[in-house]
């Protein structure tokens, strides 16, 4: 009996591992390609494991046509992406947490309606927003600025954050608040001193989502940013490929660069992510 269970267990382990390797294969292939020498790319039959590791693709990305202004300003794309993502993450998590707290702690008329309105704003696809936003923002000089793009991302990230935090605050016993009120706290200080510190794991999870969503967004960024002053990484990547369609290795190298911050962010906060996401669901 014990023996059978053990065999069954290792069967599960091996199967899970196999499936996941297969699952991650496309990603692994792209990462390998970025580090291959040029003559290993697109050969028949495919060379699975790179025979030699080289950083050529990255070097040519950064040193591309150094004597003209154009090239691919990978550095500024990255810096713009970081600024836009951080700015929008901080503010949207701040605002979303406030809204989430309001939804979880107070019952008022129009509660469900306002909640749904906020949620549904997330369901509006980018194609419907792009051009009107462009026309609106150019009047106030917000087109092609980091701030303008960050503002758009704040709006996009608020609904999800509010929803997540709503679930989180529900989880925190109301009795804590009541105790605080008895001690003479007002709403603000109860929120600030009691509930917010307890909700930090939830905010961490919300931050991951907001950060990744901003970091990866392409559609609106492609309309609202135009120059290396504000262009983000996904837009830069698209330009790169539209100019050099056949350079798959360069594309792979750029992908790897683009993944770096996302990887760091996800790995650092991996456990928080699961906790944060599911915390609210358990009791609802």
């Amino acid at each position: 009996m014990f023996q059978r269970q053990k065999i069954e267990q290792s069967f599960y382990n091996i199967m899970a591992f196999g499936i996941l390797i297969l699952f991650a294969l496309p990603a692994i292939w792209v990462i390998f390609t970025a580090f291959r020498p040029a003559n290993e790319v697109n050969v028949t039959p495919p060379i699975w494991i790179p025979q030699k590791i080289t950083l050529d693709a990255f070097a040519s990305l950064f040193g591309f046509n150094p004597d003209i202004a154009a090239g691919v300003p990978v550095g500024s794309y990255m810096w713009n992406s970081i600024r836009v993502s951080l700015l929008s993450t901080i503010i949207s998590v701040g605002l979303g947490t406030m809204a989430g707290y309001a939804f979880s702690r107070f019952r008022f008329r129009g509660h469900t309606l306002v909640f749904l309105l906020i949620m549904l704003s997330r369901a509006v696809p980018g194609v419907a927003l792009g051009l009107p936003l462009f026309l609106l923002m150019r009047q106030y000089g917000l087109v092609d600025t980091v701030h303008g793009l960050a503002l758009v991302y704040i709006a996009i990230n608020i609904p999800f954050t509010a929803w997540l935090m709503d679930g989180f605050f529900r989880q925190i016993p109301k009795e804590l608040d009541e105790a605080a009120y008895i001690d003479g706290c007002n709403h603000w200080s109860a929120f600030w001193r009691i509930d917010l510190p307890l909700a930090l794991p939830g905010m961490a999870a919300a931050s991951i989502f907001a950060f990744l969503a901003s970091w990866n967004e392409y559609q609106l960024a492609s309309l609202l940013t135009k120059t290396p002053v504000a262009k983000t990484f996904p837009v830069g990547l698209f330009d790169f490929t539209s100019q050099f369609t056949v350079d798959w290795r360069g594309m792979a190298a750029m992908s790897v660069l683009m993944m770096l911050p996302a990887i760091a962010f996800v790995i650092l906060t991996q456990r928080r992510l699961t906790e944060g996401l599911t915390f609210g669901a358990i009791k609802g």
């Binding site: 003209i68 202004a69 154009a70 135009k226 120059t227 330009d239 539209s242 100019q243 369609t245």
Partner: peptide, 9 residues
């Protein structure tokens, strides 16, 4: 100074 603001196909 010449600044290339956009390059594309």
């Amino acid at each position: 100074t010449v600044e290339i603001v956009f390059l594309g196909d």
